[in-house]
Design a protein around this nucleic acid. Structure first.
Lengths: 239, 239
DNA sequence: GGCTACTACTTGTCTATACAAGTATAGATA
DNA sequence: TATCTATACTTGTATAGACAAGTAGTAGCC
């Protein structure tokens, strides 16, 4: 997770320049990135500032640093995984959105509880909260709970989620820059069990997603579905 | 991903102490963590060193920092065992790269059973079969079983899968054109349970994958992992 | 009461410097 | 030729100090 980036920060400018060089192709994978000393001189910064820029880029996986040798542009990681996971996530998240699927809104409210911590917000700040049930042919197939940063989607609560899915709405108003998906198999939590009508301890798929927009946590959502399967088939787009 | 941490580093000692305090319960969620200045004094370090420790802990999500206010213990994630195993993600993406994982080959054989049906092969045709266990720090974290079309990878059985992952090998010899992933939460099957050492009925993540190559089913694989978390975080399409 | 100004404290950024530690290369040596 | 060595360059860690920026509380003022 990133701390706020003051846009004018010098180390940030250095980062941006290097990212630009990489994205523009002027710095190709395995190319050598200017050393800390060089960057410091170029930007009239101290070496520590250049160091911070490079260190953060390394954490982001854009470059690779080898002590005694230098800094090099990282080979683009095969993020097919990311795409696949995202697709699966989307499958799960949007399941039923397309197929005539009934949506029940259980909650739509403004909270000021301490969920803020999970979202990286100031504790005690207000947070939007919603709970939805997705039904398909009478059976509840998904329980989804969302916490939304009001700063990112001020009108989140005013939407009619029987018409548009929260994911769709949020994607429209808040350009997601970063996302984290956690997929896990869990025993159905008791507060969800009564809706899903599963047996106690029944395996459920739990997808937790956090998204960032403008360096803020935008949403924090949990989707729980009974252990049924989520299938994804498609062309393999690598490279 | 962390760079190597020189074990004796001072900022690392500060990190460890705070982690210990949190893990031991002496610092509870939302508790205030000593300020940079305080830590610096306590460890006879400079403020920058304390700063580095706190900044990295914040990146790891253990603490939350608020400018002008202070540093606070983050609320624990639902699953405290933050192993952050990425095996499934890695499987999907064939992040062949570096594994710290030990691999046990349980089976590597030629079968002629009727699994062919699932693969869309002529019944009775021969099929390669392998079972692997992935261990990490002593614990089995994944059971994976594969059926491979001999026509697509004739030398599948001759590989040393403690050296190269089946995914890596298969991708090298058989260009995958299409893939289907099914992800589901299941009760741990009994024949797998003895390896994973899970409780009976423990939720497990099950990933089933079929791949096609040259219009033939190339592989059919099942990967089962105890319900721990599979996390994937990354940027959205940023080039 | 309600407002402002001030203060104390916190984190965020930055500098200039220092030494440690890892690597590569050229040159000297055996 | 093969090996050691000095050197230059790199990143890693650490320091002491500085100012900026954000927050909370307090005191004083209207």
């Amino acid at each position: 997770m990133e701390t706020f980036t003051r846009p004018g920060a010098l180390y940030e400018q250095i980062k941006q320049q290097i990212i630009r060089e990489i994205d523009a192709g002027r710095l190709k994978p395995d190319d050598k990135v200017p050393s800390e000393t060089r960057l410091a001189k170029e930007f009239r910064a101290s070496r520590m500032t250049a160091n911070r820029a490079l260190k953060e880029l390394a954490e982001d996986g854009r470059i690779i640093r080898i002590q005694g040798v230098g800094t090099f542009v990282a080979r683009p990681k095969p993020d097919a995984a990311l795409l696949e996971i995202k697709s699966i996530a989307r499958e799960i998240a949007d399941w039923g959105g397309i197929h005539s699927c009934e949506v029940l809104v259980l909650a739509k409210e403004k909270l000021s509880l301490n969920i803020g911590a999970k979202m990286g917000l100031t504790p005690g700040r207000e947070v939007f909260h919603s709970i939805l049930l997705h039904k398909d042919s009478g059976a509840v197939i998904q329980y989804s709970e969302r916490y939304v940063n009001p700063g990112v989607a001020p009108h989140y609560l005013e939407q009619d989620y029987t018409q548009i899915t929260p994911s769709d709405y949020l994607l429209g108003v808040a350009p997601v820059q970063e996302a984290e998906h956690v997929i896990e198999a869990v025993r159905c939590p008791s507060h969800v069990q009564k809706y899903l009508k599963t047996a106690p301890g029944e395996p459920c798929l739990c997808l937790t997603r956090r998204t960032w927009s403008f360096d803020q946590v935008a949403t924090f959502s949990t989707m729980i579905s009974p252990g049924s399967r989520y299938k994804l088939k498609g062309k393999f787009n690598r490279g």
